[in-house]
């Protein structure tokens, strides 16, 4: 492992269940945090559903994505960036979501993404 520390952005674009990419991306977030990388997350498109609390994942034999998200602040990943347009398109209000949110307008997205060294998409 190199000492080089990069600023990573993990973009989550899929819903928490149905497609297990959400879980795969979270595992990368946890690994990156364990290796002391500087990480941000961005939830957009159906990825915003991951931030809804009270997910009953056990009833579909899945692990709870939201519970894992709640553990990220333990790794100094305290806020979740959210595409406000993706929320509005799904009639979700920020107050319905859990965690410390930073809402980004569509016009702000490009600059935000560009401020990172590496961008991974799940």
């Amino acid at each position: 492992m190199s000492d080089a520390k990069k600023k990573l952005l993990l973009i989550f674009r899929h819903g928490p269940y149905g497609n297990k990419l959400s879980r795969a991306g979270l595992d990368v977030a946890l690994a990156a945090a364990a290796f002391d990388q500087d990480i941000n997350t961005l939830f957009m498109d159906d990825g915003v559903w991951q931030l809804l609390p009270d997910q009953s994942a056990g009833s579909i034999d899945s692990k709870n994505v939201h519970s894992t998200l709640q553990s990220l602040p333990l790794y100094d990943l305290e806020s979740f960036h959210v595409d406000s347009h993706s929320l509005a398109a799904r009639r979700l209000e920020p107050a319905q979501l859990d965690g410390q949110l930073v809402l980004l307008e569509p016009a702000e997205l490009a600059e935000f993404i560009d401020s990172h060294d590496q961008v991974l998409s799940f």
């Binding site: 492992m1 190199s2 080089a4 520390k5 690994a31 290796f35 961008v119």
Partner: peptide, 16 residues
């Protein structure tokens, strides 16, 4: 997964 983080650290660009 450490190898993915290492790849990020050692590369100019990591493409998904």
């Amino acid at each position: 997964l450490g190898q993915l983080i290492d790849a990020s650290a050692h590369s100019d660009r990591l493409l998904t």
